[in-house]
């Protein structure tokens, strides 16, 4: 598969990365090069092969239902570009 400028723009939008037209144009061939290269995997017969789910055999451990975290608003907000009245503040969202 290969992508054109519009598709690159769409992906950039999904990824929330602003791109100028020039950047988009520059990325199209790079993108296609990489896609073409990874598409070698098409050669591999994977019929009946399960996708890998765990790198190393291991069990998902579950936590006990204990409140032992939170209550650290200062830490949570400490690095915020904009915090007001105990909230994070962002440009107004219209729903």
């Amino acid at each position: 598969m290969s992508v054109n400028a519009d598709q690159v723009r769409h992906v950039a939008k999904l990824a929330r990365i602003a791109m100028s037209d020039a950047e988009v144009e520059k990325m199209v061939p790079e993108f296609n090069n990489i896609l073409k290269w990874v598409e070698q995997l098409g050669e591999v017969d994977t019929d009946g092969v399960e996708p890998l789910t765990a790198v190393i055999d291991n069990e998902l451990r579950l936590r006990d239902d204990v409140v032992n975290d939170g209550d650290c608003r200062d830490d949570v907000l400490k690095n915020a570009p904009e915090a007001q009245h105990g909230f994070f503040a962002v440009p107004k969202v219209i729903e």
């Binding site: 998902l60 006990d64 209550d71 608003r73």
Partner: peptide
């Protein structure tokens, strides 16, 4: 491990995991 109680002061029942601080990881509650 942050609390779930309703009606608390804003951002007081938030762990660094809930705030998605860099390097934080989820561990499921049984």
């Amino acid at each position: 491990g942050a609390a779930t109680a309703f009606g608390a002061e804003p951002n007081t029942q938030v762990s660094l995991v809930d705030a998605a601080m860099p390097g934080m990881l989820p561990v499921p509650n049984k």
